[in-house]
């Protein structure tokens, strides 16, 4: 069976700087991957290349065997139209560090708008699904609240519900708790843990090393745009084989 996600020799340059220096990765279905590493290591860029918010300089991304962000025509690779790209993105869920909720919509409307306008569900159906997802993340009492009235943790949970409502094949978390006050981190991690236990395929860029070791099946340590070490949490986190990994983890535990 095809892996759900396959990345082949991915490179990304911003001007003169090479941020991703040849990433190869395969993620089978239901695997939970945590990506850790120092800032500037390219973790977020890698994530953003998967749903094509960043266009790779070279290399390819496949989801379920299908190319993302480009297609093949007569042997060459061509860009996708807006519509085609949008359709691919609808199957990938992306949770942002800064939530990016739509301030002019209530929590319910935030979660319902994509099912309605992208999947074409009817108003009632979309709202019913939205209610379900918001209840799932523990916000059944906040349907009519606007984002400005919600705490950071609540906003991020709405953002997760918004992604869940699209029933994505793959979920990407870009430092989902880094912008939260410490006491609000727990409620978001709880939701992520619950999603992990449901058998979803998830890739999480995170600084929460403890959480990563508990929830992830596989940990990847990145540095300088390359995958330095990867393996199950017991290996990478508790018993790293690379000096750089050890140094990074030592710095993190000092905090």
């Amino acid at each position: 069976m095809d892996p759900l996600l396959k990345i082949v020799d991915l490179h990304k340059r911003f001007g003169e700087t090479e941020v991703l220096c040849g990433i190869d990765l395969e993620v089978p279905r239901t695997q939970k991957v945590a990506i850790i590493g120092p800032s500037g290591s390219g973790k977020t860029t890698l994530l953003r290349c998967i749903n094509y918010l960043e266009k790779p300089s070279s290399g390819h991304v496949y989801i379920d065997g299908a190319l993302i962000g480009e297609k093949q025509r007569n042997g060459a690779y061509v860009h996708l139209s807006d519509r085609e790209l949008a359709k691919e993105r609808a199957e990938i869920g992306f949770v942002f560090q800064r939530f990016n909720l739509f301030p002019h919509l209530t929590a319910l409307a935030n979660v319902a708008i994509a099912p309605r306008r992208v999947l074409g569900l009817g108003q009632k159906e979309a709202e019913a699904r939205a209610r379900e997802m918001l209840t799932k993340v523990g916000l059944a009492h906040k349907f009519e609240a606007f984002p400005e009235r919600l705490s950071g943790g609540q906003q991020q949970r709405v953002a997760i519900a918004r992604v869940l409502a699209m029933q994505p094949k793959l979920m990407l978390f870009d430092e989902a708790t880094s912008a939260l006050d410490p006491e609000l981190i727990g409620e978001v991690l709880r939701v992520i843990r619950q999603l992990a236990e449901e058998g979803r395929t998830m890739i999480m860029v995170t600084h929460e090393i403890q959480f990563a070791s508990e929830v992830a099946d596989r940990v990847i340590f990145m540095d300088g745009g390359r995958i330095v070490e990867e393996g199950p949490p017991e290996a990478v986190i508790r018993n790293p084989s690379q000096a750089r990994t050890r140094a990074f983890l030592a710095r993190m535990s000092e905090r």
Binding site: N51, L53, A86, R89, G93, F96, N100, V118, L119
Partner: peptide, 24 residues
Amino acid sequence: GQMEAALSLGMTPATAMRWIILPQ
């Protein structure tokens, strides 16, 4: 971030303009 969130949910730039950007 508003545009990126809309695009990540699978909206085309046009849909995002219509329902997310212009209304704000």
